[in-house]
Amino acid sequence: MPTSSAELSRQGTWRSFPFWGTGFVAALCWVAFALYSTEAPNATRDWPYTQELANLSLGFAALLAVIALLPGRFARKLRPAGKWLVVLPILLGLWQLATAKQALLPVPFFAPPQALLEVYAEDWARLAESLLHSLWLLLNGVLLGAVFGFVAGISIGWSQRIGYWVHPVLRILGPVPSTALLPICFFIFPSSWGASVFLIALATWFPVTVLTWSGVASVDRAYYDVARTLGASQRFLIFRVAIPAALPHVFVGLFMGLGASFSVLVVAEMMGVKAGLGWYLQWAQGWAAYANMYAALLVMALLCSGLITLLFLVRDRVLSWQQGAVKW
């Protein structure tokens, strides 16, 4: 919906002359970044994969230019990202300037962008394996924690008798940072993998339990009265009234639990598990392979962000009846 006359006229020009200016400027910026990468002299040494990096950004620039000239559905979807597509090559250029070109940052510790490209090209197999290991560990832990947290939260919220026993455990064990229990768990559990699953589950369990509980506790009493006068059983009250009413809270708990699980995952992999992205980070640091570290960090950022995005997608589907939920 256009909100002002200015916006209306801008949309009007789009329709009559569909050339996408910002996209074209972005394409030019990517070309400039490619030229700067290959043509400007390096400060200390020549970096492999500089040419490949330049080729990639030239290819991307060409793609952007085509999209800017031939607008279709895809171009219209890309338009809101236009300003970022301009700023991104500029930021990459500054990174290039601070590392390879002028060496403003201490050399072995800060790698230029082409060094990351090199890691992805040469070490992708090990990175992919680490990613899969991390994902598998996370999946096991988070699923266990979420299921137990959900059940515990519903039980405490519903039954005072169960609450009597679970509540003190929740109060004592819940707030302890799971990472603090890591040494004990590595000692108790037969494998470090099992210990890590347990700790990730614990870190997820706590917020999911508390939020599910508060969700069940805050259900409007009138909802139960309505169902009871219509002949609902206890089972119906739990599964058809309490749980759907508590779901918005449950998703907040899952969001918090997922965030907590990431940090436990990385620490566990750094300290005991001999695989995964956390292990890769530690290993890269041991070999002073700093480019590998950045490459792994980037993969980790995408993994975490991707999982959170997935959670929000599920939430938007399940809670489509809600209005004005936060867009991730």
């Binding site: 409007d220 009138a222 909802y223 009265d225 309505v226 006068t229 219509l230 009234v241 759907p244 009413a245 779901l247 809670l319 009846w321 809600q322």
Partner: peptide, 13 residues
Amino acid sequence: ILVFQDPTLYPWR
């Protein structure tokens, strides 16, 4: 059956 002053419809249905 009781009809309340508030409709108390379930917002998720």
